[in-house]
């Protein structure tokens, strides 16, 4: 069986600077993979490279056997990869509803609709006509997640969705992920908060200066080994 996503020797360059080196990664259908790594390790660059939004990208990335290199971001999203960008990246003057609808319009046809998203995040229904910038950080993150989910992705990419949020809100957001997986959606979770993302993941990869320094199952890895590969040899 071919994996849903298979990445081989992926590199990302910003002019002369290389942010991601020869990364290999596969993600199976319905699998949750966590990418951890320090600030600047190249996690966001890797996610953005999957949707062709990071500098110059070389190497191969395939979704269900289909080469992504030949596609534009728009086509990749329509094929079933949705990104929840770092920093949420909502459209501040658009209403919640408009933000969500744009996600839906750009995505795949599927069974996740507004009703489902409102069920996961009831507050979004209440505030559907508020502008995005009027919401709290946690609510904004719900919109960002909802926007991506409405695209009915086969692969959901979450970039630091817990950043700057209160633990209670983070719990609420992370509670959704297993439910999403149950629908057969694969999820890649990027976090700096190691324990949070290892708890939800089937597998993890650790990035160090743009390279994969460690990978495995959360249960098999002890904290010291992870720390060592998270911060590099010095620690």
């Amino acid at each position: 069986m071919t994996p849903l996503l298979s990445v081989e020797k992926l590199n990302v360059f910003y002019d002369a600077f290389q942010a991601v080196h020869d990364v290999d990664l596969t993600v199976g259908e319905g699998e949750i993979v966590s990418i951890i790594g320090a600030n600047g390790a190249g996690k966001s660059s890797f996610l953005k490279a999957l949707v062709r939004q990071a500098g110059r990208v070389t190497g191969s990335a395939r979704l269900d056997g289909c080469d992504l290199a030949a596609l534009s971001t728009r086509e990749i999203v329509a094929k079933g990869i949705a990104l929840v960008p770092e920093g949420r990246k909502l459209f501040p003057t658009l209403t919640i509803f408009e933000n969500l609808r744009i996600g839906q319009e750009l995505g795949r046809k599927g069974d996740i609709g507004f009703e489902q998203v409102y069920e996961w995040f009831p507050v979004l229904r209440e505030r559907r006509d508020s502008r995005a910038r009027e919401l709290s950080g946690g609510q904004q993150q719900m919109v960002a997640l909802g926007r991506a989910l409405l695209a009915n992705p086969r692969l959901l990419l979450c970039d630091e969705i817990s950043l700057g949020l209160a633990p209670r809100v983070v719990n609420e957001l992370y509670a959704i992920i297993p439910q999403v997986r149950e629908r057969g959606v694969a999820v890649v979770v990027v976090e700096q908060d190691i324990s949070r993302s290892l708890a939800v993941a089937d597998r993890f990869v650790c990035f160090l200066e743009g390279e994969v320094s460690l990978s495995g199952r959360p249960a098999d890895a002890d904290r010291d080994t992870i720390m060592q590969h998270y911060f590099g040899g010095a620690h």
Partner: peptide, 26 residues
């Protein structure tokens, strides 16, 4: 209109639009 909302989205943040596949160049 939906296209109007897209125009306003790009006006708000073209980089964010590009990230989610709403190509600002279009």
């Amino acid at each position: 209109t939906a296209i109007g909302a897209r125009i306003r989205a790009v006006a708000d943040d073209p980089a964010a639009a590009d990230l989610i596949g709403l190509t600002s160049a279009r």
